[in-house]
Structures are given as structure tokens and as C-alpha cells.
């Protein structure tokens, strides 16, 4: 009851005394947790470097400018590789994500008890692990190179695409499916006529959205050896060639912005 009776008459409060105590208690716990975390970080930090940071930052800045513009001639192939990693990775991911999504959606899964949990686990497992980790793993297994990057990106994207797609499948209008079923259509025909047309726009949107993200991710895969422009970045960092680093960062920035622009255009055209 937010209306309290006091000796001065009824008083309106937002919360009762118990509620507001609880409220403050939650805040207190939150702050305490944050303070503990901060102390941990602070202990692990060499504060001398931190106080020295402005000078170092200035030093790096002066070394990195101006960017070494003529180095761009050597970046053509890495950019092409980066684009391929993102695009092929997205295409492969979609091929894997579509069946997983249909197995995971409540209204299309053949078995809620066995297959759905497996599909959901695939989605969570591939989604929770970053593409850089997948790349590390794949490099250990099949060796460094663009191919490992493609596979890493595609595995990472499966869970993402499948999750969004199965949510779209669960939101379709059942009446359209029912109408197709009532014509005597087979299971696959119901899928092709009743379900697919309803989720196709969502699928196209997801594909472009993920492609945009994959452009970003594929630019850094080279840091662990999985091909693309990240390889040049990592090589330049290792030899402290800061003018090259700044140029590569600018190129990456341009690629990311361009990717976002393309994906926004395509999505607007689809919807």
C-alpha cells in the first residue's frame, strides 16, 4: 500500500517502507560489487604506465601520422580476401542456419523433446563463442589462411542467423498454414507455400544484417592468422610500423562504413 497512515493523516509515497528499504539494499549490493570489481582491476594494473599514458599516446600519434599512403597498393588483395571471408561465410552460414532454425522453432520442429534442445544448443554454442576463438580453433585444426577465416565466420554466424530466423518462424500467422494444410498439401508443400513466403523477408533482412557484422569481424580475423586485412595489421604492429597501422585502420574504418551503407540500402530495398 503506497498510502501510509501517519499521525498527520494519510501520506502518499511511491513505495512502502519495506519496498524502499529493499530498493536501497539492491543499490547498495550493486555498488559494493562494482567497488570490488574495480579493486581487482586496479590491483592488476601497473599505475605507473597509466600515469605515463598521455605521453605514450602522444608519442604513438606523432609516429602514426601521416599514414603511409603508398602502402595501400599492397592492401588490394587483403581487402578482397576480407570481403570474401565475410560474403562466403555468410552464405555458408545461411545454408546451415535454415535447417537449424526450422528444427528449433516450436511450430515446425519434428520433436520438441529431442531435436529442439539439440538445435537450441547448437544455436547457443555457436553464438556464445566469438569468431576469433573459432578462428583460433580452426587454425589449429586446418592450418592458417583464408579458408579457416571463412569457416570461422560461418560457424559463428549460424547461431545468430538461426536464432533470429526461428523467432521469425514462431511469429508466422498460423491461419495461412492451416489454409494450405486444408487443401491437402503435403508436409513439404505446406512448408514451401505456408511458411517460407512468410519468413522470406525476415531471412533476407537477417542475411544482410549478418553480412554487415561479418565485414567488421573479418577485418580482424587476420590478427590470429585467419586471412584478410588483419594479417597486415598484425604484421605492421609486430614491427611497430605505425604509419602502416594508421593507414590500415583507416581502410578498415572505410570498409566498415561502406558495409553498413550497403546493408542499409539493401534492407531498405527489401522491405
Amino acid at each position: 500500500m503506497p498510502v501510509l497512515t501517519t499521525d498527520k493523516g494519510a501520506v502518499w509515497r511511491r513505495r512502502t517502507t519495506g519496498q524502499s528499504l529493499f530498493h536501497w539494499f539492491i543499490w547498495l549490493v550493486g555498488i559494493a560489487i562494482f567497488v570490488v570489481c574495480w579493486q581487482q582491476i586496479s590491483e592488476a594494473t601497473t599505475w605507473f604506465f597509466v600515469w605515463d599514458a598521455p605521453r605514450i599516446a602522444g608519442d604513438i600519434w606523432s609516429r602514426a601520422t601521416p599514414p603511409k599512403w603508398d602502402y595501400i597498393a599492397q592492401l588490394g588483395r587483403p581487402i578482397w580476401d576480407t570481403l570474401n571471408i565475410a560474403t562466403l561465410g555468410t552464405i555458408i552460414a545461411l545454408f546451415m542456419a535454415i535447417p537449424v532454425a526450422f528444427l528449433a522453432a516450436r511450430n515446425t520442429t519434428p520433436s520438441k523433446l529431442f531435436i529442439r534442445p539439440i538445435a537450441l544448443f547448437i544455436i547457443v554454442a555457436t553464438r556464445s563463442i566469438n569468431s576469433l576463438i573459432w578462428a583460433l580453433l580452426l587454425i589449429a585444426i586446418i592450418g592458417p589462411g583464408v579458408f579457416a577465416g571463412v569457416i570461422a565466420i560461418s560457424i559463428r554466424s549460424v547461431g545468430f542467423c538461426a536464432k533470429l530466423l526461428y523467432e521469425a518462424i514462431e511469429e508466422i500467422q498460423e491461419s495461412q498454414v492451416e489454409a494450405i494444410t486444408a487443401t491437402g498439401a503435403s508436409r513439404w508443400q505446406v512448408m514451401a507455400y505456408g511458411i517460407v513466403p512468410q519468413v522470406l523477408p525476415a531471412l533476407a533482412g537477417i542475411a544482410v544484417f549478418r553480412w554487415d557484422i561479418n565485414i567488421r569481424e573479418s577485418t580482424v580475423l587476420g590478427l590470429v592468422g585467419a586471412g584478410g586485412i588483419g594479417l597486415q595489421l598484425s604484421a605492421s604492429l609486430n614491427v611497430l610500423a605505425w604509419p602502416q597501422v594508421s593507414l590500415i585502420l583507416l581502410v578498415i574504418l572505410a570498409a566498415v562504413v561502406l558495409g553498413e551503407w550497403v546493408s542499409a540500402k539493401v534492407r531498405a530495398a527489401i522491405i
Binding site: 500467422q173 491461419s175 495461412q176 492451416e178 489454409a179 494450405i180 507455400y193 505456408g194 513466403p197 512468410q198 522470406l200 523477408p201
Partner: peptide
């Protein structure tokens, strides 16, 4: 509500 497949 007709139940047509709206995108076809």
C-alpha cells in the same frame, strides 16, 4: 480473415 498467403 481469408487466410491467404499474403506475400504470394
Amino acid at each position: 480473415e481469408y487466410a491467404l498467403v499474403e506475400r504470394l
